[in-house]
Design a protein around this nucleic acid. Sequence first.
DNA 1: ACAATAGTGTCTCTAAGACATTATTTT
DNA 2: AAAATAATGTCTTAGAGACACTATTGT
Lengths: 227, 227
Amino acid sequence: MQEFFVTVDLVVLTIREGRLEVLVVERKYPPFEGSWALPGGYVGPEEDLRDAAYRELSEETSIGAGVYLEQLGSYGAPWRDPRGRTVTIAWLALVPGMAEPTAGTDASDAAWRSVADFESGALPLAFDHGEILTDGIERARAKLEYSPLAAAFCPPEFTVGQLRAIYEAVWGTELDPRNFHRKVTRSPGFLEPTGRTSNVDGGRPAQLFTRGTLDVLNPPITRAGQL
Amino acid sequence: MQEFFVTVDLVVLTIREGRLEVLVVERKYPPFEGSWALPGGYVGPEEDLRDAAYRELSEETSIGAGVYLEQLGSYGAPWRDPRGRTVTIAWLALVPGMAEPTAGTDASDAAWRSVADFESGALPLAFDHGEILTDGIERARAKLEYSPLAAAFCPPEFTVGQLRAIYEAVWGTELDPRNFHRKVTRSPGFLEPTGRTSNVDGGRPAQLFTRGTLDVLNPPITRAGQL
DNA sequence: ACAATAGTGTCTCTAAGACATTATTTT
DNA sequence: AAAATAATGTCTTAGAGACACTATTGT
């Protein structure tokens, strides 16, 4: 009965300057020395999988509790790691835009890179991390449709305009501000008004909201068929 | 660096006599001797995860190629298996109703049991397989909404009535036959008419269809708000 | 004839998409 | 004043849900 190494790898996405970005680390030792890879590491002897993912996330960013973290899937092709038979459990984390990566404690320098660069081929990744990242991006894009998850990219209080910017960055589309406003404000439980306002973007001050308690958006926000 | 055992476990669902059923095996050795469990087993030294899942499925049922098989998730709580630190990759398989379980080649007797029994607590499962099955059932229910996956439960040619019975069995609801007919026949790519008809259920002969090429149903079939 | 199931059509209502208009701020 | 963004309202249309009605079989 074969024994395996088990790791967790993280697809950490954020929005910075209106772009969807991913956290990558530079590998300092072989294999793939000098390449970019997803952050991750070995699961501890008595550590739960989610705890391992959360620990790796804490080590690479300044992100604390309350981060959105969901399991993405497992990858275990026989030769995916030349050091030995390794199965990795990939996790998807969505973090607010102001999160800063931590300079590498464990043999890595972490940096935000744009997802557009990855998708154009300008950011090759070590191991099968390209496949994992592709799956993570698609998961995030799909989830925005039927869940209020976009708020996970936002600070605790945010405006409808900021929320719309999240959708536009993740989907790479433009959404009608008026229809979007109607949709999210009239979906009960999506947003909770705080009564406060913000005017950081110029123009009329916008109402500030916090995340509501809704967890499934029905009917969904569709990304097909709008320009 | 800890080494782990890695297994695959299968949530195999089917529809028999209008009921949603799950394939379970009786454990013949400790731990959990005599209990029911999900079918599964160890991943081979040079075996891909999907191949391992497919191999276990073939060993337990008469199902051949073309079965729908998707990864459900990984479960790796430290003490989930008393024999040692084990991570399992769970897979969801949907098989047509006539599939028969194979009497246990590897220390198990396989049987179909109704999901209703499981959900009422009448079918306790070994290890954390109850949690895995709960997740698998929910995944199947959710996927029927926005994918043409229900056809995976059907024989190669089927009627709209048979397809509707799948939805009703999986969701435990009743659907309006006329609205359902309109929905599935007017979703381009969902169904391909064969020109043939069937009248096994009495009444007017029904058109036979095969699965179409569609893979995402937009707009979805909703399970909320209909009786 | 009657029961059963298949299939079509019609009506209402919700919500998406397109877009006009007003409101409130900064420059 | 002009530009920018927020917020509300109107119109059209697609599609869900409810349900009447016709079609074609077996008993």
